[in-house]
Design a binder for these strands. Structure first.
Lengths: 158, 158
DNA sequence: TGGCAACTGTTATGAAACATAACTATATTT
DNA sequence: AAATATAGTTATGTTTCATAACAGTTGCCA
């Protein structure tokens, strides 16, 4: 079929209609857009998505261990070490020894960490308002509810 | 505050309530679940998410160039080379020279590629039915519509 | 017509996220 | 006390994604 060669030269726009029929493809495309904008939002704070998530979870769950944090973030423990290392080196969290179990560290946010997180959280809120600004309150609630159902569907099939 | 140490020992479950208030966080969690199940679905065909996407786009847009495919997949051209290399080496697609522009390759799916894709697409359909099975038709349509609006919000802010 | 700019595909390289195996230190179980 | 399990760590490798630089080709335009 050398006829396709003609249409290859200047195909106006390629079609992803087949993939658009898959919910997962639309999820990926939307998440990529949100993810890219979130990265730009966090850059001024020297945070990435993972470090922002870790910082928030430490702030909300003072004293949790690295294993607990790793499980909450669905990250393997070895990979969490570098994240915690970075946050501790920057003075945003502390690794405190636990007397009752000297294997574990109790992670806590510092005053400086809380201050940085407050600013970052405000910026992330603004980012969400921009990305989801077109959605009605009810539509956003329905979206989250549907996403949670999908997430639960996957948990049964690990 | 050495009091936190006590609760650190056996915190029953850590809370991600703050993050759950962010749409993006729920999107990531749901997408991770779908993505993991999709990877398991494609494994028997020796395909990953990216190679399945590329194969589908080549099948639907015969003769497209690597640049066009890269743009459609939101992948940088250097990274697409390895994907196309793999598909071509496996005999699933062909790289044909275009006489009118000898810089570009026209990508086309082979008979064997189409046969593999047919099986994979059927499996992906079953995977979608399982993951989205709990959703009503209207709910699924609303989800896709909302996701597309979010995706469009991001495109204005690159 | 000749030369400069732009584009296609490619190589090399590095960063980031994620996974596994193996180790040390401590705790738990038996 | 010995065997087993757990927390954190190190080392290592894979995958995805980004950037710079290059050769070959095309298009522009002066």
């Amino acid at each position: 079929m050398p006829d396709d060669a003609a249409e290859a030269a200047k195909r106006p726009h390629i079609s992803d209609a087949t993939l658009r029929g898959l919910v997962g493809y639309n999820m990926k495309r939307a998440f990529m857009a949100v993810s890219a904008d979130l990265a730009r939002t966090l850059a001024p704070f020297d945070l990435r998505m993972l470090t922002f998530t870790a910082l928030t979870l430490v702030a909300d769950n003072p004293g949790l261990s690295q294993s607990q944090l790793a499980q909450a973030m669905t990250v393997e423990r070895p990979n969490l070490v570098v994240i915690v290392d970075e946050l501790e080196t920057r003075g945003l969290i502390t690794r405190d020894r636990v007397p009752t179990d000297r294997r574990t560290y109790a992670l806590r946010i510092t005053v400086e960490g809380a201050r940085l997180l407050a600013g970052a959280a405000r910026a992330v809120g603004a980012h969400e308002n921009l990305m989801m600004g077109g959605l009605a309150k009810a539509e956003e609630a329905a979206l989250i509810s549907t996403l949670n159902r999908i997430e639960a569907s996957g948990k049964g099939r690990s």
